[in-house]
Design a protein around this nucleic acid. Structure first.
Lengths: 321, 321
DNA sequence: GAATAAACTCGAAACGATACGAGTGGCGGT
DNA sequence: ACCGCCACTCGTATCGTTTCGAGTTTATTC
């Protein structure tokens, strides 16, 4: 079929073991090196990672399991991870589980059968059993954007609660009193934390009103609907804080439709890099997560764990822009 | 280390070959099936795809090589491919070559050494040597969004030239006479085709003016700069046609800054799903590529080729919304 | 209940690479 | 000229599955 190490051996008159040594960076005699390199070029040899992996128990692949591939959050992070991991010789196999638990588990088994050396997951549930199979098989796992109840995996998250509290405080400082909160499903770790940060700030200022809180579907439509609902029920709302990208977009659209000018009629703080909309709404504040950093740190942590490092928790700081 | 087929054999008292048969869907005796299934559950067996691939020369993996991961175009397509391919039992290894030729070649070798069964590529250059290694190794290749000079690979593209001509004609019908064109680097197949469609329409109407054409960097900034330049040099421009997503956004931002109202002061046709901006600019026309379909068709074609099908070219239709 | 066909099951040999212990050659020192 | 040592190089077993031809059950038929 294709060119193997044996063909190289035959071509050069050396033993497989020698070729293998060369391929793995073990020094070989100069004249042999030349011969081998010439043979590789001539025959177009490409190393069979499968045979290699079978023997070495390393595949040079890591699995990336996320609930939704096509959004800014995921792709920014993945791009960064991919780059870093490639540099280290790892390829990434990406699985999108569509925020579906059954599919998540299935994808996990799939990735394990692909012999991945490690796993970076953004789990749908925060339950450790989501990735227990991986842990049982001694596959290092890095969880991003969520905290789980397991200490056998690493976590890379941002200081959700704190940044959310700060963002809210900023609105309060501005003199706002009826600050609405729009989040995704608060059972999700991230949304829950962000909501708590908001609550802390509001309670401290004596402004908390649970009627001003909406958690809806994490989507442009969800943000749109929640905003409409807020404006309808509490017309004198003087600020809105949205805790994720998609809903921020939806909310801006709704405000636009209602004719409320951000920065003039109403204060607004969104989430994630909303560069595009900023062109239209220059006054907008936004909570910026260090997305590329999350990706990079997650990748680094995984590499370290593959090398035998212990799991650890890393909290990155977001900033208000 | 981990549980193998041999452990299952020992546990059940059967031969490896029988277990293997069961795993591959070959019928086994009912009582053996039960025994095997019980053993798999008890031991937590997960099939080692590497050993399997070594023997079968199939890996159950396809490589996806694209110039830029983090944009709407790529992710929408990838999401769709991933779903379809997973269904068929394939995983995808994604490589982002950052629009870099050297990196593209390197990624290709990388993917080949990972023993992918097929390749979906959006090549940086249109030169066939970009993927000749793959073809030489009998790996089926599907090229998306570009036409290349090779008939050993499949192509999945949209009717760029035609849709571009139609979009331009529509502007002409509207009574526009000084229609500017903004595209990415026209050496890229897609941009070139789109430019030609525009030219055809303009020439036919006797309106062509090469000074009204800008090709710049395919990015938000590039679109912004090109628009500013157009408005500066040809202030009475009465329509702008932008042929890709990122530049559309940039162009809208520039128009906004210049105080030109789309649909009132100037006609505008953008590219790809600009849902977000549409909320601000409801009058905007846009050329919609069937992104998910591209992904699905590419995946289907690849699967077919892996199964022995011949390469073929598929042209999908875009529409003006 | 024996013969025959059909349906499973078996053992051992691959697949392509690496690991390991043993073997070989060249070289400096005496 | 011999010894010892270092630095490669070699042959072979092995990784976990599948494959294949041959062997064993089971079912069917008369």
């Amino acid at each position: 079929m294709s060119v193997t190490i044996k063909d190289l051996a035959k071509e050069t008159g050396l033993a497989n073991a020698t070729i293998s040594a060369y391929l793995n960076g073990v020094p070989v005699r100069e004249y042999n090196r030349v011969k081998i390199e010439k043979a590789i070029k001539k025959l177009g040899y490409i190393r069979n990672d499968y045979a290699r992996g079978l023997k070495t128990h390393r595949s040079g692949t890591v699995g990336v399991l996320i609930p939704e591939l096509s959004n800014v959050f995921s792709t920014t992070i993945i791009t960064e991870m991919e780059e870093y991991l490639r540099e280290k010789g790892y390829g990434i196999i990406v699985c999108d589980c569509k925020t579906d638990l059954r599919r998540e588990e299935e994808s996990l088994r799939f990735l394990l059968s692909k012999m991945v050396d490690g796993l970076i997951i953004m789990p749908v549930s925060t339950d450790k059993k989501a990735f227990s199979i991986a842990v049982e098989n001694n596959i290092p796992v890095v969880v991003i954007d969520r905290k789980t109840n397991s200490d056998e995996v690493s976590h890379v998250v941002i200081d959700n609660r704190e940044i959310s509290r700060k963002a809210t405080e900023k609105l309060i400082e501005k003199g706002c009193e009826r600050i609405a909160l729009i989040t995704g499903n608060t059972e999700v770790y991230t949304a829950g934390e962000r909501k708590e940060g908001y609550e802390e700030a509001m309670r401290a200022a004596g402004l908390y009103d649970e009627k001003a809180v909406r958690d809806g579907k994490l989507s442009v439509e969800g943000g749109y609907a929640a905003t409409k609902s807020i404006l309808n029920e509490i017309p004198d709302t003087d600020a809105i804080f949205v805790t994720n990208y998609e809903m921020t977009i939806g909310s801006i659209i709704a405000l636009n439709e209602e004719g409320r000018k951000i920065g003039k009629d109403i204060e607004f703080t969104g989430f994630d890099k909303v560069e595009i909309t900023k062109a239209f709404v220059p006054e907008m504040r936004t909570v910026n997560q260090p997305l590329p950093e999350i990706g990079k740190v997650a990748a680094e942590t995984l590499i370290d764990m593959i090398g035998g490092g212990k799991p650890r928790d890393i909290i990155l700081k977001a900033e208000i822009v």
